[in-house]
């Protein structure tokens, strides 16, 4: 049997347009590491019977926030991860837009909560909004580390562990982390309550970020503590830029403008080319503009008191 010649080969007799067209088409790409982890988690849930729907749209819808976090991570790390957005949604936007468009975290906490609530909404029963989360055992909990999120940690607002152990604020926060109550972000793929105490670090991290994102709206101090605790427990976690951005947002929500600016500047220094850095720059400019536009107490003593920037 004669071995066929490839059409892209000039000797094949195919027209130059066909040759050129075939040569310019991209080969299928391999799975990235993040996609591997994400699909691994999804298949484990399929195997566990968590996903029983007709399609994975429900799976991905319920895990929308996780997909968003992973997209942010992928873009930040330069990986070409395609968004896991619901494919069966009406084609109101091109599919690539989901890839190229940054995941926009609303600037106001209330909108952030709405966005996350919508993303995690599922027809199944919701877990208790204050269900405690079993965190993985901190690997380096007792080692104080100079990190961005916990540098500005509201220690006084953090539940203190019973252990008489370390006196440092960071260690106390790390030990207190398992007692942090979180919201409905404990709901994982498939709309069933899951513990982030899984084997996949990316899943655990995405859970933590989703929880922190929700907490920013109603309890930014706790969100900050959660981020700091996770930062200590998982020093080699991957979604670092997103985590630092959430810390920045939590500080803004707390009205700690100076700390937020410091955090924002650190984020920009560490991840200058990330989406989070560009968003942070924009928000910092807004904050600076708001501060500049605020009338000085000395110059206008009759001006009404301004509220801190959320």
């Amino acid at each position: 049997m004669k071995i066929p010649q490839r059409m892209s080969d000039p000797r094949s007799g195919a027209s130059p347009e066909i040759q050129s067209g075939l040569r310019s088409l991209a080969k299928p790409r391999a799975m990235t590491e993040i996609e591997r982890q994400l699909t691994s988690v999804a298949v484990k849930k399929i195997a566990a019977g968590t996903v029983a729907g007709a399609g994975s749209a429900a799976l991905l819808k319920s895990g929308g926030w996780l997909a968003g976090a992973l997209v942010v991570a992928a873009v930040a790390t330069g990986a070409l991860v395609r968004s896991a957005g619901p494919s069966h949604a009406p084609p109101t936007s091109p599919p690539g837009a989901a890839i190229l468009r940054p995941v926009v975290l609303p600037t106001r906490p209330s909108r952030a909560l709405e966005a996350v609530t919508q993303a995690t909404a599922a027809p199944t029963a919701q877990p208790s909004p204050l269900a405690p989360v079993q965190w993985p055992a901190p690997t380096r909990a007792a080692q104080p580390r100079a990190r961005s999120a916990h540098a500005a940690l509201p220690v006084s607002q953090t539940p203190v562990a019973e252990s008489p152990g370390p006196a440092s604020a960071e260690s106390a926060v790390a030990l207190a982390a398992p007692t942090i109550a979180v919201g409905s972000a404990t709901q994982g793929f498939g709309g069933r309550a899951t513990s982030p105490n899984g084997e996949d670090p990316i899943e655990t991290e995405a859970h933590a970020l989703g929880e922190a994102m929700q907490l920013i709206a109603r309890d930014p101090a706790r969100a900050l503590a959660l981020l700091a605790a996770f930062d200590l427990a998982h020093p080699s976690a991957q979604l670092r830029a997103e985590r630092e951005f959430l810390g920045f947002e939590a500080l803004r929500a707390l009205g700690r403008t100076d700390d937020a600016q410091l955090q924002g500047q650190r984020l920009i220094q560490r991840h200058p080319s990330s989406i989070q850095a560009s968003r942070t720059r924009r928000l910092l400019q807004q904050m600076t503009g708001e501060v500049a536009s605020q009338p000085s107490a000395n110059s206008t003593p009759s001006a009404p008191a301004t509220t801190p920037n959320p």
Binding site: E35, A67, R82, S83, P95, G96
Partner: peptide, 8 residues
């Protein structure tokens, strides 16, 4: 398409 790969 790439964007729909994880879903499919």
């Amino acid at each position: 398409r790439d964007a729909d790969l994880p879903d499919q």
